[in-house]
């Protein structure tokens, strides 16, 4: 047990070192990067990824993957936006409820199909990625939700709060904290790890795999829905063809960098938060360094692969162990 916790700590320390190194190197090249202004930009950029990453992390820990979160994000943002547009007199929380609940419903469908038919989540969510995008086009009648229709209070949530840290930042870190509580202090939370570590042994230990797995997908959907509202707040409008497209890759990159193992059973909130911060810093650093945006995807892809290789190396006791086994 202590060996495992040490490994955990080492893992997060590693990411922290990478983050510090990255900031240091970028600041050396471009001193302007090391400023409170940059910190503010990074903090504004991460909530969207962080909230969805918490969901994706739980899915990965349960040894699944959810590729549909970008479409869920778009769907929820459109659904909430339509409430805002068509019923401006309704209070803000109704829009929030619609966004989060519609996300939860779509996530529930993912979980249900995956567990009921015992299908690989990657193929199911590749299908729902397309399906949900189609549904959101149908729901919205292919019409954008204009900035005018997004309520002022929602947009201000991306700008300020009583303590001068924008609300969306507070919400995102609140969600991270709640996820941490859930995963470490609740029985179900621990069961998620158990399922991911050994799906066949989990039922023998009295864990009801199906409901827990469905719950994990539902939570991932709900959090993607919440991210949809954060999107609306931050960018001020929702477009059916743009909002959330390709978002899944950013989130998976962040989570994998955060040390969550794609083989299930391993991953922590702290690691994921650090992974998101690292990715957010990369996102902000590229334009400040004057690097063409064209590099962004290649860098994300490269980082994912490097994180995968590191993950494997750590688990197999270093590169030597890896090669020894590889030669077998």
């Amino acid at each position: 047990m202590s060996a495992i916790s040490r490994l955990f700590r080492a893992r997060e320390a590693g990411i922290l070192v990478m983050l510090v190194l990255f900031v240091a190197v970028v600041s050396l090249i471009q001193p302007r990067f090391f400023s409170t202004e940059t910190l503010r930009i990074v903090l504004l950029a991460v909530p969207l990824i962080l909230v969805a990453a918490m969901g994706q992390m739980m899915v990965l820990v349960a040894r699944h993957v959810d590729l549909s979160i970008g479409s869920i994000l778009g769907f929820s943002a459109i659904a909430a936006g339509m409430i805002f547009r068509d019923h401006p007199e309704w209070p803000l929380y109704i829009g929030f409820a619609v966004g989060v609940l519609s996300g939860a419903a779509l996530g529930f469908v993912n979980g249900l199909v995956v567990t009921l038919f015992k299908l690989p989540s990657i193929i199911v969510t590749l299908g729902t990625l397309s399906l949900y995008r189609g549904l959101l086009f149908i729901l919205s009648g292919s019409k954008q939700i204009d900035p005018n229709d997004i309520p002022e209070p929602l947009i201000r949530m991306a700008q300020t709060s009583p303590i001068d840290i924008p609300w969306i930042v507070i919400i995102a870190f609140g969600v991270a904290f709640a996820t941490w509580l859930f995963l470490t202090h609740s029985q179900i939370g621990r069961q998620i790890y158990a399922i991911g570590s050994n799906p066949t042994a989990a039922p023998l230990r009295g864990i009801r795999v199906m409901p827990v797995t469905i719950l994990v997908f539902t939570l991932s959907g709900a959090l993607a829905g919440l991210a949809g509202l954060i999107y609306a707040a931050r960018f001020g409008y929702v477009n059916p063809g743009i909002t959330g497209v390709g978002f899944e890759f950013t989130v998976i990159a962040a989570v994998v960098i955060g040390g969550v193992s794609i083989n299930g059973g391993v991953g922590s909130v702290l690691g994921t938060v650090l992974g998101v911060l690292l990715l957010g810093s990369v996102q902000v650093a590229l334009p400040i360094l004057g690097v063409s945006g064209f590099w962004q995807n290649a860098i994300y892809g490269g980082i994912i692969l490097i994180a995968l290789v590191i993950d494997r190396t750590v688990r197999q006791g270093g590169l030597r162990g890896l090669l020894a086994r590889g030669g077998a």
Binding site: I252, V256, W295, N297, Y300, G301, G302, I304, L308, L322
Partner: peptide
């Protein structure tokens, strides 16, 4: 390296297009 192809090829999907 014995990594699962499902996630490796998601990574290379992003990398190659990038």
């Amino acid at each position: 390296l014995r990594l699962p192809s499902i996630i490796v090829t998601i990574g290379t999907l992003i990398l190659y297009r990038g």
